[in-house]
Design a protein around this nucleic acid. Structure first.
Lengths: 253, 253
DNA sequence: TGACGTCATTGAGTGGCCTCAAAGTCGTAT
DNA sequence: ATACGACTTTGAGGCCACTCAATGACGTCA
């Protein structure tokens, strides 16, 4: 229960020195080309919890990579409540859904102290004129996002509360693991409320499922600290089919 | 009730002569450049109802544009039932979500007799090396798909049965309208079952909502023929915020 | 250290949608 | 025309997750 995925990092780290470069945009570039990407990246001061990176309707200028911390994106429902559409962890890229409308279709807010690399889109486009591999990578990123959203649609239309939460936890575990952190125990950066909002469940339901999972020794949870006790069964609940599952199970053996 | 959006068309029409070119991929190209796109497009025989364009897991080679008819994409749930992920109408492009895995993540099946333009992706990529505008258009297409999927997630996690169906009908109406057909009355290419599957509802619920809508004179429905009687109220039910709504309302005045 | 606000948990009761079942309608092929 | 299967509609009953309400735990700041 002591993993600290979100340790502070020095405020300005060049891509070539960034521990996330193999997961982030630079992975599409050779070592010498990375510096060109590096030159267009803006690295601002850290965002405090609750601060916005951009608001729904802001003009689309940049895409962003999370360096540390966590970001949620959300949009307003018709009744004015927020509907969370995604969570972004370090190395993950957000903002690409604004490309075709010239405004961001969602708001992006820091869930904890968060460091961000901003990549002005116009310059990113020029750069991808030079580097076909970068442009392919961008397309792959978007394609991946589409697949993930469709998995989410499946979750929302077919899975019950237990399955939703299991799927969510396995997915998080897999993403932590990919970045070299423990997939067994980690810290949730979102509240139960945010989790429920994202998963289409009431807070109370999330809480009840957590309690039940704990009773059945699937997980051990204290506040936002989570330990996955029985990854295999959790994966089975989640629906097995997801790629995440195998990785998380195999990591536990 | 006599609109026929899906009239037969001659089997081989060049992009420059295709009535859909202003909505489809060619919109990104100048008149003289269209022919280059045209040259790489494969136009096969029409697909009969039920025939597959590709299967989940098939190697990703091409993207496809619907010329007439309608396609659904679906994936298998863990229990082996089908989960429909999208419907595609003429001029709409499918297959782009396969880019980053090299296999299609869903199956694509004709819901009625359907004509398709196949665009081999490798050649499309070379072409987009030449034409930045084409490549931007592809990115915009994917970006749009992401936004649409997120609207769908919102529908699935926040809307009740009435709102889901209203949203669905308004969205269809808007898509028909965009292609120059009536947004007031059209023919559904999917069954109640498929609609329910897509919207996360049981068939019986879909049927009951249709009956209720008809009783309240929001729509008039006989089998798959739909007439929208009260677009304004339907839009309000759908949630107003969607861009579709305004267009459909204004079309009715 | 205490008080406050926020977040999480637990319980009771309700309702919307699902499931199961049966009858009705449509389309198609013989 | 008739018969068959597939699709749609309608009804009855049940369950899962929601809402409402209250208590409990946590973290933060004076």
């Amino acid at each position: 229960m002591t993993s600290k995925p979100n340790v502070r990092q020095p405020s300005h780290v060049a891509c070539r020195d960034c521990s996330l470069s193999s997961l982030c945009l630079p992975l599409a570039l050779s070592l010498q080309d990375i510096d060109q990407l590096d030159r267009i990246i803006k690295r601002g001061r850290p965002l405090k919890k609750g601060e916005h990176l951009f608001l729904e309707g802001d003009s689309f200028d940049s895409v962003f990579a999370v360096r540390s911390g966590a970001i949620k994106t959300y949009t307003a429902t018709n009744e004015g409540e927020e509907q969370i559409t995604s969570f972004y962890l370090p190395s993950e890229v957000l903002g690409l859904s604004g490309i075709d409308t010239d405004v961001y279709p969602v708001s992006a807010q820091a869930m904890e102290t968060t460091m961000i690399c901003e990549i002005p889109f116009e310059q990113l486009e020029s750069l991808s004129d030079q580097f076909p591999e970068l442009r392919r990578h961008l397309m792959r990123l978007m394609s991946k996002k589409i697949r993930e959203d469709q998995q989410m649609m499946m979750l929302l239309s077919k899975k019950n509360a237990d399955e939703r939460i299991a799927t969510f936890l396995i997915n998080l575990a897999s993403r932590f693991r990919r970045r070299g952190f423990s997939s067994q125990s980690f810290r949730l950066s979102m509240s139960r409320n945010e989790m429920g909002n994202y998963l289409g469940l009431a807070v109370e339901t999330v809480s009840r499922v957590f309690t039940r999972f704990q009773k059945n020794e699937l997980i051990y949870a204290v506040g936002k600290e989570i330990e996955i006790r029985d990854p295999a069964q959790l994966c089975q609940l989640a629906g097995g089919k997801t790629v995440d599952a195998e990785q998380v199970i195999s990591a536990s053996q």
